[in-house]
Amino acid sequence: MNICVFCSAYSLDARYTAPAAEFARLLGEGGHTLVWGGSDAGLMGLLADEVKAAGGKLVGIMVELLKHKGYRGADELVMTRDLAERKAELAARADAIVVLVGGLGTLDEVTEVLELKKHGLHDKPVVVLDTEGFYTGLRTQLERMDAEGFLPRALGELITFAETPEQVFEQLKA
């Protein structure tokens, strides 16, 4: 499976990196391909290192502007002109989307894939690994949108949340 992962390019505390590393190990051991932002920085670089060490394949999709941060060990590294093209390429190459901890870029990416899914433009699973309750606020907001009629599809059809890396893979199989 080609698993697109949205996550931070910043170096983070071990409470965030340890679950991400475990997820990456499971991804690689499962023979899956990581499709990600292509960076060697922060959590993105850690994820790529762990997937590669566990035998997985790496497909990085980067913005030309950031090519100096490209992961040198990628099996494939694709350069795009801008962020919009990058997001489209990430989604096009994915069989599933997993969201790890991240900042505004990660939030932008996940909301875009949910908007596309809401309109039936893809039906790929979207799973959030909610490490340390990082996405509790997002989950609460989405549940309110669902309860108050702002979503044309049930929330559970758009996105699911997992507490552990193992649960992410259980949900992807379901």
Rank of each mutant, 00 (worst) to 15 (best):
K67N: 00
V63F: 02
G42N: 05
G42Y: 01
T33M: 05
L47P: 04
Y71L: 12
A20Q: 03
F23W: 03
M44Y: 03
L47A: 10
S8H: 05
A9E: 00
A9Y: 01
K67F: 00
G42S: 05
E64D: 14
A14H: 09
G60H: 07
L27E: 07
A53S: 15
Y10E: 12
K67S: 09
T33G: 04
H32E: 11
K57W: 02
D49C: 13
A9R: 08
T17G: 04
G30D: 03
D40I: 09
G28W: 04
W36S: 14
L58S: 08
R72T: 09
A14P: 07
K69G: 00
L26E: 13
R15D: 04
G45S: 08
A9K: 00
L58Y: 06
L66K: 02
P19T: 08
L43S: 10
E50K: 15
G38H: 02
L34Q: 07
L34E: 05
E29A: 14
K57R: 15
D40P: 00
I61M: 03
F23Q: 01
D40C: 15
E64W: 03
M44H: 02
G55K: 12
A14I: 06
L43F: 09
G30W: 04
S11H: 03
E22N: 07
G42I: 02
M44P: 02
A24H: 05
